[in-house]
Each structure stands twice: as C-alpha cells, then as structure tokens.
Simulated assay, not measured.
Amino acid sequence: MNRINTKLQENKKLLSIYFTAGFPNLNDTVKIIQDLEKNGVDMIEIGLPFSDPLADGPTIQDSSTKALKNGMTTEVLFNQLKNIRESVNIPLIIMGYFNPMLQYGVDAFCKKCKDIGIDGLIIPDLPVDVYHDNYKEIFEKHGLINIFLITPQTPDERIRFIDSVSNGFIYMVSSASVTGSQSGFGDDQKEYFERISNMNLKNPQIVGFGIKDNATFNQATEYAKGAIIGSAFIKFLNDNSVENIDSFVKSIR
C-alpha cells in the first residue's frame, strides 16, 4: 500500500508541511525533511521551484526565486533525495508545476519518483480531465498518487469527478486566494468545510492555504482529515535557523 494511504488510515488529525526544495540553502532539503519527521510531522510536500508559480503567494514565490538562484533544478532535487528512504519513513509528495515535468518527460519523471521513494504528486496546473485522459496510466504504473485541488468555487459535479479519479486525499483549498494571504477562517470557509464533509466523498480531505498556528490547524481539521502548512513554515525558515524546526511543529500541535 502507498505510504499516503497507510498514513490516512491512522486515527489522528494529520499535519503536512510544505517547503521549497533548495531553500533557504541549496543543500538544506534532506535535513529539513529528516527534522520534520523527527518532530512528528505526518507528511511532507517538497516544493519543486518554478519561475512562474501562479497559485503561490509572495512568501513561497520568494522562496522559489531564492531556491532557483541557489541552483535548484529537477535533477538536483532527485540527486538530493536518492537515499532519502534510508532515513525517512513518512509519505513524501513533490508539489510542482507541470512544465518542468513535461520537460523532463512525464514517464521518466514518474519513474524517478518511484525509484527514489516519492509517494505522490501535487500539480496545480494539471487539470483532472487532462490527467485522466493522458497521464493516469503512467502515474499508476509507477505507484504514484496524484492529488487534486478543490476550492469553494469548484462545482459539486467536478468535485465528484475528482473524487472518482483520486485514490489518496483531496487537497481542499480553503479559499480562492493565493497561498499565505489569509488570517484565520470566517463563516464562509467553515460552511465550505462542512459542505464538503457532508458530500461523503470516498477520499479524505486535507485543508491547505491559511493554516499557520494551532488555532487555524484545529479549525481546518474540525471537518477534514488534516491540514497543510506552507507559507508560515517558509517564513519560519526565513527568520530562524533550520536547527529550530522542533519549535515550529510544537507551536502547531
């Protein structure tokens, strides 16, 4: 069974952390992953930096720019992660845009992920119908789970189609804004969380965008299986040493 599915079966609210590979320094990637697991994080999203990250707010865009300047590339990331499964057991997901994967070759990219021990991909600009028609067989051949995003504006019919195509979890974007642009959740978001919960989808949901502390983590997971923190962790890395990751995780849990 894929590590993501195994983790989703645990009787707990899951904490997933996103960070940009190659930030703050090019060779911090493996240490950050190891420290996050050591401090109780359940899943990790490794951001593959891209020059035109449409869904990302200023904090993650800035980290991507710095990572690219540091020399991060798809090949560098794969090289950094080649022995990651000797020290890390939790699910690892690469989050990135489709263009670098196309340039690498989708089949070759997926095979490399499988060889390294990557469990899934999040590709915000790959529409679910395009994936279903053209790439689903490739992903499944290599044992990769592809995770799709929904927003408050996603029609129910499309949500159900995404649910039918998915075999892991659904990334429930808390609002239609970019990452890092929220402070807490209002009534509209809570109604959205509850509405999706009441759809009784076969895949659990994990909430992203707007989670930054214990209060927002608890709000987001009231109706969902877990929550994803990205911009708040990137800000923490920008302001603190990578040696202090334990204090960030403790502030969320």
Rank of each mutant, 00 (worst) to 15 (best):
I159L: 00
K136H: 11
D133A: 09
D129C: 02
C110G: 00
Q9A: 14
Y192D: 06
I93T: 07
N134I: 05
F209K: 01
N99K: 06
V88I: 12
I33S: 05
F50E: 09
G186D: 15
I229S: 07
S174E: 09
N70R: 13
T154S: 06
A67W: 09
R253D: 09
C113G: 10
K7Y: 04
L121D: 06
I4E: 03
I159E: 01
K235Y: 06
S16P: 00
F217Q: 03
P127V: 13
D115T: 15
K66A: 11
K225C: 05
V76P: 00
N134T: 10
L14G: 03
F78G: 04
F185L: 07
N89V: 10
G57A: 02
Y135G: 01
S164I: 01
G117I: 10
T59N: 02
Y135A: 00
V207M: 05
V76Q: 02
I17C: 02
L92N: 10
P127Q: 02
Y192F: 15
Y171S: 03
D188I: 14
G143L: 04
P204S: 03
S51N: 13
G230R: 05
P100Y: 08
G180N: 10
V88A: 00
G71H: 09
M95L: 15
E86Y: 09
G120N: 07
P53F: 04
G57I: 08
T73C: 02
I84D: 07
F217P: 08
T6L: 11
Q153F: 08
L77C: 04
P127S: 03
Q9M: 13
L126G: 07
V249P: 08
D56H: 09
K69P: 08
G120L: 07
Q189K: 04
P127G: 03
I196N: 02
N25F: 12
L126I: 14
S181F: 06
G47I: 09
I211K: 02
K202D: 11
N200P: 03
P53T: 14
M101S: 04
I32C: 01
G180E: 09
T65C: 01
V165R: 11
G230H: 09
Q61V: 14
K225A: 02
C113A: 07
K235A: 07
S16I: 14
K250H: 13
P24V: 15
M43P: 06
P91K: 12
Q219I: 14
G22I: 12
E191G: 07
S174C: 09
I44Y: 13
P100R: 00
N2I: 10
N203A: 03
F193R: 06
S175P: 12
T151H: 08
Q153V: 15
V128Y: 10
